[in-house]
């Protein structure tokens, strides 16, 4: 099994629901966003680019691209970053030594470091006292490695896990569930009949920074609404 995702940029309305759902479900500390949505070319999100009446506004959600040839995994000195049997790149929060080599290595800027203690950060920025968000229980992979915990330890790296706490039970990742435009399709790339496989084959799917040879498992369908 090789879990992958197709994001249809034609359908994406740039609402950032996926980013918010991701943030909440995965208990991301303040300032940490596993999933980002921006308007390429524009200083501000949701502001068109172009000139002379030829304006364009597309949206590009970016989270971990789940590279098959993942530089973050290859550089990790302690094997804290690894690919599980379903092709999902995960970080073991109990093994990460916080060297941040993987942040330098990832071409997609999706890896985030816990610069301060998440508990203290929530307090410091003034989140309401007692406001706990996110999936409440730890999740360990079948080998017992801690790959999700609602309050991350200080000094470790984190990133999108394809919602390992849900997808390991056969449910969909939070971003896929939350997308009101149904722009995200999730499934097994090894199964030729899955919707993701069909879309990748039949549509002009592309991947980010293809030239680096990282072989992401996140594919994008190009936007056709090029100007409006």
């Amino acid at each position: 099994m090789r879990l992958g995702m197709v994001i249809d940029l034609d359908r994406c309305i740039g609402c950032r629901s996926c980013a918010v759902a991701c943030k909440a479900h995965n208990a991301q500390p303040p300032g940490t966003w596993w999933n980002r949505v921006f308007t390429p070319g524009s200083e501000e999100h949701q502001v068109a680019v172009g000139s002379n009446g030829h304006l364009q506004m597309n949206f590009l959600p970016v989270s971990c691209q789940m590279c098959d040839n993942a530089p973050c995994e290859k550089v990790c000195p302690a094997g804290a970053t690894y690919t599980d049997e379903r092709g999902v790149v995960l970080v073991d929060y109990e093994r990460c030594i916080g060297c941040r080599y993987c942040i330098a290595a990832c071409p997609y800027g999706v890896r985030q470091f816990n610069w301060e203690d998440p508990h203290q950060a929530k307090e410091r920025v003034g989140y309401q006292e007692g406001y706990e968000y996110g999936y409440p229980a730890d999740y360990r992979d079948p080998d017992g490695r801690l790959v999700y915990t609602p309050n991350r330890p200080l000094g470790v790296v984190e990133k999108c896990t394809f919602c390992v706490q849900y997808t390991s039970k056969g449910e969909l990742p939070a971003c896929v569930q939350a997308c009101p435009a149904k722009a995200r399709i999730f499934g097994d790339l090894d199964d030729p009949d899955s919707e993701v496989s069909r879309l990748v084959q039949e549509r002009q799917a592309f991947r980010l920074k293809e030239e680096l040879g990282t072989s992401p498992k996140v594919f994008y369908l190009p936007p056709t609404k090029s100007s409006r």
């Binding site: 990790c76 000195p77 916080g98 060297c99 941040r100 000094g155 470790v156």
Partner: peptide
């Protein structure tokens, strides 16, 4: 520079030879 300096032994316990 390590975020978790007390865990550096992990480099010896679980070395990733590719790194």
């Amino acid at each position: 520079d390590m975020g978790r300096v007390e865990r550096v032994f992990n480099v010896f316990l679980h070395p990733n030879w590719r790194s």
